[in-house]
Simulated scan of single mutants.
Amino acid sequence: MMTGFISLMGKRALITGGTKGAGSATVALFRELGARVLTSARSRPDTLPDELFVAADLATEDGVATVAEAARGRLGGVDILVHMLGGSSAPAGGFAALTEAEWHKELAHNLFPAVRLDRELVPGMVAQASGVVIHVSSIQRLLPLPESTTAYAAAKAALSTYSKALSKEVAPKGVRVVRVSPGWIETEAARRYAERLAEKAGTDYEGGKKIIMDGLGGIPLGRPAQPEEVASLIAFLASDRAGAITGSEHIIDGGTIPTV
């Protein structure tokens, strides 16, 4: 369906965190639409050939340098840079449970990979006077869950502010920068979480999903987003069809955020 509407034919794309969930769906769709894709994670899954993948820990400066070098060496630079990497491993227990190490871990995972990788690769986009950078943030920057995601939400808020500043700087030089902020995505990890909640509450999977949705204050659409839906939004924003869109945030949350 998407192939008749947009094309990424011949575009050189780097997608971080592209081995699971919405990241994996984005890699698959970009390839379907004709892009030359390179993705990264700490370990390669069996589903990706070596030429499409570079193993690196983007929470480290060395890892970022490895991925940037691979993008320049294998692709000759990038036309599209999609920052899918993100997530939280912080413990529950509110702000008091967040040690110095936990704060640094959330920032190292959700903010600094984008900042560092942009510093490596955006100058090449500026030099060619074209390119698209997509920062995947989260609705939690607006709707933090204080029990367990305060640091994650704060890191995503910082990413959003940084993204807006970058867009203002490089848009006059031909480079578009946009943000995509998903709500709850029904990934494999999310399904496992819903199943654990369901088991604990003595209900079924749909009951587990309802517990999560209620915790978010409800999802008016009545369901989470699918990874392929997030990928479709990212692909559109990366395409020439979105050529006048920059500096903006695009929320895909089924109506979770209750404000204008």
Results as ranks from 00 to 15, higher is better:
G86N: 05
G86C: 07
G87Q: 04
S88V: 01
A90V: 12
A92V: 14
G93L: 10
G94D: 10
G94T: 11
A96S: 14
A96I: 08
A97F: 08
A97P: 05
A97M: 04
L98S: 11
T99Q: 14
T99N: 13
E100Y: 10
A101E: 15
A101M: 06
A101L: 11
E102A: 14
W103T: 09
H104A: 15
L107G: 00
L107K: 08
A108K: 01
H109Y: 05
N110R: 01
F112K: 09
F112Q: 15
P113G: 03
V115A: 07
V115P: 08
R116A: 12
R116G: 12
L117G: 07
L117W: 13
D118G: 02
D118F: 01
R119L: 11
E120H: 09
E120T: 11
L121S: 10
L121Y: 07
P123R: 05
G124C: 07
G124I: 12
M125C: 08
V126A: 00
V126D: 03
Q128F: 09
Q128Y: 02
A129P: 01
S130G: 13
G131M: 06
V132W: 00
V133H: 03
H135L: 03
H135G: 02
S137K: 02
S137W: 02
S138E: 02
I139Q: 06
I139E: 13
I139L: 14
Q140P: 05
R141I: 08
L143F: 08
P144F: 06
L145I: 15
E147K: 01
S148F: 11
S148R: 14
T149S: 15
T149C: 08
T149H: 12
T150D: 05
Y152Q: 03
Y152P: 05
A153T: 04
A153E: 01
A153K: 04
A154P: 03
A155Q: 08
K156V: 11
A157P: 10
A158M: 01
A158F: 03
S160G: 06
T161E: 10
S163W: 03
S163T: 06
S163R: 04
K164L: 12
K164A: 14
L166F: 09
L166D: 13
L166W: 07
S167M: 07
S167C: 07
S167Y: 08
K168E: 15
K168L: 15
V170L: 09
